[in-house]
Design a protein around this nucleic acid. Structure first.
Length: 411
RNA sequence: GCCCCGUUCGUCUAGCGGUCCAGGACGCGACAUUCUCAAUGUCGAGAUCAUGGGUUCGAUUCCCAUACGGGGUACCA
């Protein structure tokens, strides 16, 4: 049976690359009817950040890629690591120095494996390897050690992790060998780079998945875009739901080159998802997204809400765009000239229109525009209060005559 | 420096020896639609497949070298 694990260290916020690793783990497990576990590698006492784990769980919960079973904390398993470390010492494969336990790396050996990303053979020579610490002087294990011990104890079959671990894989291989344990398959994922071709970091803007949520991205889009960075199902397929990704996921379609995060394409994908969910669903998500915003919440709970959501959907890239789209307040004040035009327009419309039905209104606007030689854009602004956005007729349907007229009257 | 990995349009990528004078998507441009902006549809520009050597009847696809990019080189993960 396939069993994988996501093993982050709670030393900071998980950036998008970290969560992508979780996603690939999840996809692979689901695809193969396997298990997906979560292990917190909290072995670095100095760099530990206590909010990190909660944030991580919140991300997984939001994205609905939650692990199975109990969460393992390495900090609670110190006695286990100690026991195994001593075993290596007694086998004379490790030694104590400066209060820490070190593994002696054999110079004559070579270490090789076939990495499942790109299905390539990787080989390191023992002479390039250095002895390394497995148990620190504070009695905590190092990553290399705790990771191997736990992967063995939990019978992990496939290790998905960032490619920054390739160089230390020889250490891990040697540990498996020293204990006589069967080693797992390795799947080293290329790291995601920013637009300047350097590793994603704070400088590149919002990096946490939670940040994307608060910026109005849909979880479907986040999942979809993360999956697409470095993996594709082959062919032209781009938009995929989680279930579809599970169905299509294959390790040999993971790329081994570093992808660059493209904010613009991500936004486009988010728009695609916003347009593809139902109006009712979108409305619910907007209600949740704007739960702290009284004004928008009021709008969203009004009877006009479904219509507004519907006409706003095609104009949104993120949920954040909704507010300005449906706001009733004018985008800017009218100029003196515009105030004059607005007065004229108001008189014109109130005198000529009987029903205020769309066709009649549109004709009147066109006529006014022509007769007075006023550009349509100006009329649009005067009637809607916006330079651009939801159409006059759409607003006429939703808010009606009074709203349009009041825009002509205000400043 | 040394070790490891990578390199197809600006970006994400398809391609796994002939189907490729390289296909799709984002972005960009044009047109259509049209009450603005979007959305949508159609078309277009954009890659001598990093460079140089091989192998082969034939290389984007296989091998080597160079260049460039990324990663590692901690009692951090």
């Amino acid at each position: 049976m396939v069993r994988v694990r996501f093993a982050p260290s709670p030393t900071g916020i998980q950036h998008i690359g970290g969560i992508r690793t979780a996603l690939y783990n999840y996809l692979f497990a689901k695809k193969n009817q396997g298990e997906f576990l979560l292990r917190i590698e909290d072995t670095d006492q100095k760099r530990l950040i206590k909010e990190a784990e909660g944030a991580l769980l919140e991300m997984l919960r939001w994205l609905e890629i939650e692990p199975k079973g109990n969460i393992v904390h390495q900090s609670k398993r110190l006695d286990i690591y100690k026991k195994y470390a001593k075993e290596l010492v007694s086998k004379e494969l490790a030694y104590e120095k400066d209060g820490a336990i070190w593994v002696k790396m054999p110079e004559s050996k070579s270490f090789e494996w076939t990495d499942l990303v790109g299905n390539k053979h990787i080989r390191f020579e023992g002479k390039d390897q250095k002895d390394f610490v497995i148990l620190k002087s504070d009695e905590f294990p190092t990553y290399h050690f705790a990771n191997v011990v736990d992967d063995h104890l939990f019978e992990i079959t496939h290790v998905f992790r960032g490619e920054e671990w390739i160089s230390s894989t020889p250490k891990h291989l040697y540990l498996y060998e020293s204990f006589g344990w069967k080693r797992p398959e390795f799947v080293h994922l290329p790291v995601i780079l920013g637009s300047d071709h350097t590793k994603l970091s704070k400088r590149h803007g919002a990096k946490s998945v939670l940040d994307y949520r608060s910026q109005g991205y849909l979880k479907e889009a986040v999942l979809n875009y993360m999956a697409l960075l470095g993996w594709n199902p082959g062919g032209d397929r781009e938009k995929m739901s989680l279930d579809e990704m599970i169905e299509l996921f294959k390790i040999d379609h993971i790329n081994s080159a570093n992808p660059i995060f493209d904010q613009t394409k991500f936004e486009w994908l988010n728009g695609v998802w916003i347009r593809s969910i139902s109006t009712k669903d979108l409305q619910e998500r907007l209600i949740e997204f704007y739960s702290d915003d009284k004004e928008v919440t009021e709008t969203l709970k009004s009877s006009k809400s479904p219509d507004l959501v519907k006409v706003a959907a095609s104009r949104m890239k993120t949920l954040m765009d909704f507010k300005s789209l449906v706001s009733k307040t004018s985008q800017r004040e009218k100029t003196r000239e515009e105030i004059k035009i607005a007065k004229k327009l108001k008189t014109f419309l109130t005198q000529n229109l009987k029903t205020w039905e769309d066709a009649e209104l549109l004709n009147a606007i066109k006529e006014f525009s022509k007769e007075e030689d006023i550009p349509f854009k100006t009329i649009f602004f005067l009637l809607t209060g916006k330079e651009q956005g939801i159409g006059i007729l759409e607003l006429n349907q939703i808010y009606g005559k009074d709203f349009l007229i009041s825009n002509l009257e205000g400043k």
